[in-house]
Structure formats: C-alpha cells, structure tokens
Design a protein around this nucleic acid. Structure first.
Lengths: 237, 237
DNA sequence: AAAAATGACTGATTAATATCATAAAACATT
DNA sequence: AATGTTTTATGATATTAATCAGTCATTTTT
C-alpha cells in the first residue's frame, strides 16, 4: 500500500457519480471528503479479513475487489465483485459486528478509506445519505436471496451461463456482435462466484466454447452468443 | 383475516421485547402504535406476494411465517422463518422496490400491519430506531451470505443437520436429554429451507432417526443427539 | 363409510457434479 | 534457455442427490 500524493476531494471524484454519494451536495459530503484517504492497492492485496473489526469503510475509485467468504472446506465463495463507486464494509459497521467476509483486490485499485467516525457522523447528520445506504443494503439483501435461490435450485451450467452474462453487463466492452468481459479472473475465481469446483468451470467453459457461445482472448472471455447463454441460464427457456 | 377486537398498544405488547422496538421509550413508538392494526392469520394465508408493491411492514406478535422465493422450476426456497418480534417487509420498503419474496403463515399468527407512512415517519424522526433497523438489515445480509456459502459448499446432509440444530435453537423446547422442535413443517418445507428435493429430506431424516440422532413425535422432530448432528453439520469435525 | 386427495416414504435409476490423477500450457525465476 | 511453479485442461471414477415410479398412511371430502 502506498499513499497517493493526490487525494482528490469527493466533490471532484470521477467515480462519485456511480456511488451512493451521487447527487448529494458538496457540503453534504464534506465530512467524508475531509477525512478520507486514498490508497493504491495491487492485485492480491487484502482490504480486510473476515472476523476482524471494521474501522471504517472503503470507497472504490478504480479497480475491482472480490468480497468472499471462506467455507469450512477451504474454498472461497465470492459473494460480490465490487468496482468503481461501490462502498465496502459498511454492513459490518452498521451491523456493529466484525467483518463477515473478506475483501481482496482482483484488479489494481485506488480505494478511499473513510474512517468509521466520519462515515457515521455523515450518516447521522445527513438523512438523505443514510436513506441511500439503507436502500443499497436492502437491495443487496434481495440480491443475496436471489443468489441463494439460484444456488439451490439451478444447475452449475445454468449458474455459470448467468454469471458470464452478469459479468458482461458489469465489465463488458462492446465489439460489434460480441462483447468482451474486460476483467481477468482465474477459473478458480469464476468457480468461487458460481459456487462450484474449478474443474467444472473449466469443463463447462470448454463446452460453451465448443458450442460457439463464447471464445477466449488471452485470459479474457468474449461472449459470442448472448441469447444462447441466456437460454442456457434459465430453466425452461 | 379477521380484525381483532383487542389492539394492544405496542407499549404493552408482549412480543415487543423480542423486536427492534425493545428498549425504545413509549413516546418514541407512539406513531407506530397509533397506526398499527392487529390481524389474525391462519396457516396457509399469504401476507404478501413477490413482485407486489409494499404498503407497510408487518410485525409478528405470535405465530410463524415463512419468507420464500419461488424458483423458475416452481420450487420454494425459504429464505427466512420469522416469529414473534420479527419485522417483515421492511427491506422492500427501504429498498424502494417491490417485494423480492413472498410470505406465508406457517403457524396461526397474530400480526400487526404498520402502514408505510407511519413506519417511515418513525424512522426519520427516531434515529435510534433507524439505526436498529439498519443494524438488523446489515446482520441479515451477513446471514444470507453465510447461507449462500453453505448452499454451494456443503452437502445436503450437512445442511439438513445444521437446519435441524438451528430450528431447535429457535423453536426448541427442552425435555431433559432431548429437545423438541415445537413447530410443524412439512417435509417439503424443510426441503425448501435446506434447498434440496423433498425425497432427499425424507431419506436423510430416516437415516438420522436410524442413527439415533433424532426421533419423531407426531409431526414434530425431537433432537436426541445434538453433538452428533453438530458433527454431521460441519465439514471436518 | 367410502372415495378421493394429499403427504410421507421407499426403491430403482439416472444425471449431475465432485474428486482424483495426470498432462499440457502458460508464466515466472534464475 | 533451463527451471520451477501455477494454471488450465482432460480423463476416469466415485459420489451425491435428483428424478421417476409406486406404495402406504393419513386427512379431507363426499
């Protein structure tokens, strides 16, 4: 970790428009802006560990972070992939408990750390912000329930197809017919998102490639047939 | 549904001490108390459907409610079993979206309906209450992430063993050595909690019974060997 | 009480997926 | 370039759990 010489105020931050702070007035976010601290992180670095005490929250300026839980068999279940504008660690803070998951940098990132006090003060004095955070939290809960339902009721093939489409919608860059997922994930990480064994992901990706649904460009995946994958991702479609 | 003649104010409600309203002063909850409406529900009745617009929240006075999602294959995934003191439907309200799940009465219940306006007003004017709701929401998110991890990384046997222990901790009544789960759930509902097929639950319960881990008393399950089940519920124990 | 419907259970079979083993490829290090 | 290391890939096998089919038991309806 190295502290950046530049510490752009939130008011001028380019990733703000993607975040829960978009639309708030400059004065409303000044407490946060004054106390935050931008830090650069390299791939593989850990933001925080499950079980430890949260001291503040993280706001992603650039890069990608995986939020995951380590199961008792040692495998990682990735519960969320966070990118620019996303806040991390606020649930543990608001839940007044230790982190229930860990966070690791997947793609080199610039991340602001906002100390607990500054964050909570802003929440308490700015009900608009508090409402947004709560709204986000509520939404995340619904998303997680959906993931749970998919995990128990859909096959690995369906889930993988869905994950690819979802990744494309979040990290996709257009290329005519096809769409490239502009994010490098290992097969093991994809398995961690889907919730399956690495070998299963490898096999299914090969199958998808054979069926002309996807192709590979270096380590990145290109979606060639969105409709085909969508069909695969649903039960009866 | 029949409106109860008695509409105990929240201040005097016996289930309050289990709820997010415990510890709040009487004046703090008066807006809610003045606007709530107690209704009796019978087993099988629906509180709300996934996809519909929330008009308020529910506070359970007695009885049990299953909160579930219907998967594309038609099966139910039960995401939560709610009992006295639990609030339902607030995530949809705070997330400003339609219900992302449905709720059905599992055991005859008395439930207060608190209109959206009264609930939101109380939240906005009582930051202590707002904090509690947010705390609960954050906690639920962590719980759901844990369930997702279990669903993808643990076997059906492990999950069922865990579910039984969890049910015992929530609905258990002591009986010397053993502990009775004082709640009638169909095999299909247990399958919906675990996230598996009904037949698998039936088979595994028979197995658990054969191994003297549990026994049946009518429709209820008695935990005979808590430690044994705990051992089964973990990966390497 | 008889008939129908539902829920619990059992067995057989199939399908999906994890696991184990090993090889090839890619990448990093010296 | 040679080496070690990690990641990806593939094959064989084992295991788990779903599905299908059918019986028995219990409630509900007629």
């Amino acid at each position: 970790m190295s502290s950046s010489p530049h510490n752009t105020p939130c008011e001028l931050c380019a990733s703000r428009k993607f975040s829960m702070m978009s639309g708030l007035t400059d004065t409303q976010i000044c407490t946060i802006s004054d106390h935050k601290n931008l830090i650069s992180h390299r791939k593989g670095q850990i933001l925080y560990y499950e079980g430890t005490k949260p001291l503040g929250i993280f706001c992603i300026n650039s890069g990608v972070v995986k939020v995951y839980k380590t199961a008792s068999n040692g495998k990682e279940q990735i519960v969320h992939l966070a990118q620019k504008g996303d806040f991390l660690g606020y649930a543990a803070l608001l839940g007044e408990e230790n982190y229930t998951n860990s966070a690791m940098i997947v793609e080199d990132a610039k991340i602001c750390f906002i100390p607990k006090e500054a964050f909570l003060k802003t929440l308490m004095t700015n009900s608009e912000f508090f409402k947004r955070v709560t709204k986000e939290l509520s939404h995340e809960l619904g998303v997680m329930e959906e993931k749970l339902t998919d995990a128990t009721q859909k096959s690995v093939r369906e889930r993988l197809a869905y994950v690819l489409l979802h990744l494309a919608s979040c990290y996709g860059v257009e290329g005519g017919e096809s769409q490239k997922i502009d994010l490098i994930l290992s097969r093991e990480e994809i398995a961690g998102i889907v919730g399956t064994a690495t070998e299963s992901v490898i096999r299914l990706l090969s199958e998808f490639k054979k069926d002309d649904l996807i192709e590979f460009e270096g380590k990145k995946i290109i979606i060639k047939d969105k409709r085909g994958l969508a069909r695969l991702s649903d039960f009866y479609a």
